[in-house]
Amino acid sequence: MEIKIAVKNLNAFYGKNKVLKNVSIDIPQNKVLAIIGPSGCGKSTFLRCLNRMHEVVGGTVQGSIMLDGEDITRKDPVLVRRRLGMIFQKPNPFPTMSIFDNVAAGLKYNGKTDKKETAEIVEKSLKQAALWDEVKDSLEQSGINLSGGQQQRLCIARTLAIQPEVILMDEPASALDPISTTKIEDLIFELKKNYTIVIVTHNMQQASRVSDFTAFLYMGELIEYDATKKIFTSPELKQTEDYVRGRFG
């Protein structure tokens, strides 16, 4: 199994507040890693460290994050983010853009201007995100008018269009209804053929359904990290078992 991202001794801060303590995780390629833990355990922060979004809200980081052997904490965040796409909790299409422009946004502002190529990538991305059939006749309309689930798949298409290697998902289905959630989960299953996926979720069932590996974070510390099956059936630690059985958190 190849390691895509190797996180070593990661500490993250908000001001003087330490929100991640010495977290080390190896994230395998073309697998789905689920991060679980109670609110405030630092799981979103962990995700945001991976594509240098933590610093956008004024946070600081210590430690190393190796992506294919390169330490991304030393690289240009703009370049890092093109390799690690991110899906946010709330679907957030750009309100001033059409569906087409939304998907093309990353390309356009990264300097790709060839119209034909852009159109091809937009179509391919929308197909990958399982949205093409629903929107192919209304590409010029605003993305805002889609349903929540469609918006989230639009955001996934937008991320896919910049052809990242890793997709980070921050509770991507928590704002959606059950049917849309199922669609997103199916999509994750499809996507892991080509991408490495890290998903943060507070939904235990979702974690067990979609992920290959699961990491349990608590109070900023990595408590247990193992194959999803193991975490949910016979975890090493009592604390983990209590959490996945819903006894606290």
């Binding site: 240098r52 933590h54 610093e55 956008v56 809200v57 004024g58 946070g59 600081t60 980081v61 210590q62 430690g63 190393s64 330490d71 904490t73 030393r74 240009d76 965040p77 703009v78």
Partner: peptide, 20 residues
């Protein structure tokens, strides 16, 4: 070990020339 500097309280630091 590396610190992301948070100079000037700006919300984003980059070595992107355009940004600077």
């Amino acid at each position: 070990m590396k610190f992301f500097k948070n100079k000037n309280g700006s919300i984003y630091t980059s070595n992107n020339l355009g940004d600077i």
